[in-house]
């Protein structure tokens, strides 16, 4: 596929964004290839109830 881009004026007066979350991008201008990947794991998958803090010996790794 072949296409041509002719950019005129790019004038931004006022731009307000609260938050850009993980692996996101805000562009004023142009780009060719954008690859965004995100892997998010949060409770309840890993909410562990009844955990006692490990004893020092249990965490000694070789």
């Amino acid at each position: 596929m072949f296409y041509q881009v002719i950019n005129g004026d790019v004038c931004v007066e006022n731009l307000k964004v609260e938050t850009l979350v993980t692996a996101s991008s805000l562009f004023i201008g142009d780009t060719k290839t954008v690859t965004l990947t995100s892997n998010y794991e949060t409770p309840p998958e890993t909410l562990i109830v009844g955990v006692t803090t490990p004893r020092p010996s249990a965490t000694q790794r070789s």
Binding site: L20, A23, L26, I28, G29, T31, K32, N39, P43, I48
Partner: peptide, 24 residues
């Protein structure tokens, strides 16, 4: 994450987040 004012050719962003809660 990226805030970009201008031109760019290739952008590659990756993030892996894991949250763990330990409740007694």
């Amino acid at each position: 994450s990226v805030l970009h004012v201008g031109s760019n050719e290739s952008i590659c962003l990756g993030s892996r987040v894991k949250n763990i809660r330990h409740i007694m």
